[in-house]
């Protein structure tokens, strides 16, 4: 356990404060659907020429499940629910042998299995609040070679958290055997803080425990230089102009062919990013709020400058005493 006082001194952000002081006042309710519905997100990203994995096709209703036959020509693809909560219901197919497909973990799936998964998605089994949902099939991202040593199956992604349009903390999320190739921390993936200035990873976190090596591959997590880091930060700052959410996270992946792509947005980003970065969010949030109103209206270049400024400052203050 850790005392109330220590937590406050470290500037850690708790769930209640995140919800009451940052999410509720900063994120307009009507904007949530744009983020919660991955299809809407994708649509908006396309129209603003922001990079995202290509959408193959959408299944809206049960009778359309028969169109799934089309996928027999596909070798690699991902099936996702449009409104899946906490990364649930995502099926990653990475190969085909005969009439069977292979998951990232190597498990074989028949056409029946895939259709069943899609009907479950449509019925809303994985969605927020259990309402009926839409399934879509998209391009299967293959991870950049840099991550090959640390990634266990699956594709690592980079989460960047923006507050009032300013990227202010980021982490690399590495799938593990436990997380079944998924990059969600609460499903057992590893998070590694990224120094937002240099794009180099720091130590990691696994299930609230600080770690330095990947639990499956035993490779050190720190010291990885993320490729395209500046491009990622720029894209993140531009995404704010489209979505206008005051506090949200962007999940990037780096495809071995296409480079950085935006996988999804998250209007309720988790708090473990603080453990991954070994630093609380509050000092940075306060630095940004200290800049007063109007920060949101600045051009993205200016906002990135602010990132560089406040990250240095907040960090210095934390280690300075």
């Amino acid at each position: 356990m850790i005392g109330f006082k220590t937590v406050r001194e470290l500037g850690l952000l708790g769930m209640n404060r995140r919800n009451a002081e940052y999410l509720l006042p900063r994120n307009e309710r009507k904007l949530y659907p744009l983020v919660d519905d991955k299809l809407k997100t994708k649509d908006l990203l396309y129209t603003h020429q922001l990079p995202a994995p290509e959408l193959y096709f959408v299944i809206n209703h049960n009778f359309e499940v028969k169109y799934l036959r089309e996928i027999k020509f596909l070798k690699e693809f991902v099936i996702k629910p449009a409104r899946g909560a906490e990364g649930r219901g995502i099926l990653v197919i990475q190969g085909k042998t005969g009439n069977e497909w292979r998951k990232a973990s190597g498990a074989a799936l028949t056409m029946d299995d895939i259709e069943y998964h899609v009907t479950n998605i449509l019925a809303g089994l994985y969605s927020l609040g259990g309402t009926t949902d839409i399934a879509f099939i998209e391009y299967c991202v293959r991870s950049h070679i840099v991550f090959r040593p640390v990634a266990y199956q699956g594709v690592p992604d980079m989460r960047v958290i923006l507050y009032r349009g300013i990227p202010m903390m980021s982490m690399l999320r590495l799938p593990t055997r436990e997380s079944d190739g998924k990059a969600n921390l609460h499903q057992g993936a590893v998070g590694a803080g990224i120094d937002i200035l240099s794009g180099v990873t720091l130590g990691g976190v696994h299930h609230n425990y600080l770690i330095d090596r990947h639990p499956d591959t035993n490779v050190p997590i720190g010291g990885i230089r993320i490729p395209f880091w500046n491009e990622i930060l720029e894209t993140a700052a531009k995404v704010y102009d489209v979505f206008q959410l005051g506090y949200f996270g962007i999940d990037f992946v780096i495809d071995h062919l296409l480079g950085p792509l935006i996988l999804e947005l998250n209007a309720r980003p988790g708090l473990n990013i603080q453990l991954a970065n070994r630093e609380g969010l509050l000092p940075r949030l306060r630095e940004i709020d200290a800049l007063g109103p109007g920060v949101e209206e600045l051009k993205w270049e200016r906002r990135l400058e602010i990132t560089r400024k406040i990250v240095g400052k907040a960090g210095a203050r934390l280690t300075g005493n």
């Binding site: 850790i2 109330f4 937590v7 470290l10 769930m15 209640n16 425990y209 600080l210 453990l275």
Partner: peptide, 13 residues
């Protein structure tokens, strides 16, 4: 304020 279980969650700090 913090939830009591968050004190446990952030104990590694």
């Amino acid at each position: 304020g913090f939830r009591l279980l968050e004190l446990w969650r952030f104990r590694e700090f």
